[in-house]
Amino acid sequence: PELLIKHPLQNTWTLWYFENDKKKSWEENLREIASFSTVEDFWSLYNHIKCASELRIGCDYSLFKKGIRPMWEDESNKQGGRWLISLDRKQRETELDNFWLEILLCMIGEAFDDHSEDVCGAVVNIRSKADKIALWTSDSSSSKSEGVIYIGKKIKERLKIAPKATIGYQIHKDTMEKAGSVAKNTYTV
């Protein structure tokens, strides 16, 4: 039975891919690839696709709960924000793929306990200056701060980020307003 029955996930997840074709709009460049709801189907997909570090500059992978589009405008993301991890060029070779896989395993494995409900998805951006991995949550208000902080601490723990290093949480509304420059951190851990 262990080999015959797939292991169900708490949520169904959808993988998205973004490739920057300047002739098309941002939304047209965002493509839904596949959804899965078991551990085996996650691995079938993950084992089949390029690692994030092999993507061309300007490309993204996103993994979001089914029904949530990987954009600020989605109902589930509008009031939310993201924990952001920036990586330098050296880290693309050494850490990027490990970090991205770890974030995926946290999400599909529901590693954030009761606060897993607040997780929307995660995005990895491959860029010339700095790659970014971000975990998006649905509610950045102070009433949800405990959950946001819990998620941030769990990310640090699972990614083995040094205690002295900090990661920041940015509200999407701030990121939208500051397009092109750095949004402020509402929380840090």
Partner: peptide, 18 residues
């Protein structure tokens, strides 16, 4: 309610499942 939680090691062990 209940939630389906998987430890990291469990997920990794299933990576090469047939």
């Amino acid at each position: 309610g209940t939630r389906i939680v998987y430890e990291r090691s469990t997920l990794l062990n299933l990576r090469n499942s047939p």
